[in-house]
Amino acid sequence: MVTLTMDGRKIEAPEGATLLKAANSANIEIPQLCSNEELEHYGACRLCVVEITHKNRTRIVASCIYEVAEGLEVNTRSERVLNVRKLVIELLLARNPRHPSLLKIAEDLGVKKSRFEAEIKGCILCGQCIRTCREVVGVSAIGYEGRGINKRVATPFEESPPDCIACGSCHFVCPVDVIPMKEKDGVRNIWKTDFPLQKCESCGRYFAPVKQLEYFREQYNLPPEQFSKCTHCR
């Protein structure tokens, strides 16, 4: 355990923990959009910045990727921190001016309107969809395309993603809901591609994408009849 000071309070945190995690366990709220317990630390959204003091010098760091250290002094609500957060949320609002989760953070920071001209992209490039697909699902069907101002989330060659199993994790994890997914007549549509759903043998309900069930069977060496019934009928 290491002891550090956060907003004037002495708190303890396990070694190797991030400042964000330490703050959350001490009930200190820090806004963030890209950090996810199931995923590796990433540091994309920059909303979680805090100010650290080290030998008379202060520095702005992203708390979701900065590890706790003995005797570290952290200020999560200094004027400098709040100014950076305001700037960041305004930049994010320029990309997506309407999503409630962004508007909520903006309101909390006292930001009424973005100073920047709207350049609506929807996606805020937090990378949670890509990282979930890679790290949790393990298929890596989607990725980034391009770089700088042209960077965006895309399927390879903007075609139907060959590795996608239609699990919908990217749709679920997206903090600004910009990955559409629809289900109709036994077909799930995601990434502009139709994936047939498996029909339950006994109740006739469509319960999961065929490709996802195939993927599970392959991963865990399950018999072919494993997922012929839905969870209720099993």
């Binding site: 890596s140 980034y144 395309e145 770089r147 895309a154």
Partner: peptide, 12 residues
């Protein structure tokens, strides 16, 4: 290497 990864590098 997943094709999405290669596409990332090729477009970067």
């Amino acid at each position: 290497v997943p094709i999405s990864r290669i596409y990332e590098v090729a477009t970067f």
